[in-house]
Nucleic acid binder design. Structure first.
Lengths: 127, 127
DNA sequence: CCGTATCCCCTTTGATACTG
DNA sequence: CAGTATCAAAGGGGATACGG
């Protein structure tokens, strides 16, 4: 039910160093996490598949990102002991709950990125 | 109306280096931007006020964050030529549209951070 | 009061090479 | 195929000092 004190969590007074906002940003604020979650939101995928789909990600960062998500309980890793080995990644139930908020943000991005770019251009032109 | 091709923007195929998801993350993915937006969502604030409310932010980063938001057209900066000078920051209309998606994310954070912490603990205990 | 300018660290990321 | 290990590079971010 989550009926705890939600009063000042977003804009309230004590913007503690460990408020939920900061903790969530520490999770998904990096360069790759939301991209991985976004792709897995469309269906399970293998390591190499993710790597191909996410332009520019290095092997190391993909591994690191996936481990982080697995540790958070948002992604499940399944090893199929074939030859060669096949590893599938999938969102957990918890992971799927992230898709809504993420899509909301992305929708915002799609709708406003034009205005933002225009504002930047104007700002840079001005001075 | 935004009826352009939204097909593969979130989970589609070409996860280009400049897809909206990445560009939005480049905007708000840093450590301070959403915190500043969150506070300004509750009402205008002065520089020193923001600095007091956001625990741990340095003068440099607050300035830098505010400049970025101003450049993006999300925050408006007003200088009152008094002595000493008083500077007020406020969200623009565009800036206010960010509040919804941001609150959604924060709501997610509030609801799931417990589970995430538990998952982390379990993961670390396992090995 | 509200910044800007420097210096410096340290974390994040990428490149590369190597294993089961 | 799916990683791990290591090293080097880049840049975000803090501390401090100074200017309008």
């Amino acid at each position: 039910m989550v009926t705890t004190q939600v009063e000042s969590l977003f804009g309230g007074d004590p913007y503690h160093a460990d408020c939920p906002t900061r903790r969530i940003l520490d999770r998904i604020g990096d360069r790759w996490t939301v991209l991985v979650v976004g792709i897995l939101g469309n269906g399970d995928a293998r390591f190499s598949e993710l790597r191909r789909r996410i332009e520019g990600i290095s092997q190391k960062m993909l591994t690191q990102t996936l481990r982080g998500l697995e540790r958070d309980g948002l992604v499940r890793r399944t090893v199929h002991p074939e030859v060669p080995v096949r590893v599938e990644y999938a969102l957990t139930d918890a992971g799927r709950t992230l898709l809504g908020p993420l899509r909301a943000l992305q929708q915002w991005s799609i709708e406003h990125l034009g205005d933002v770019s225009a504002a930047q251009a104007a700002y840079d032109r001005a001075d």
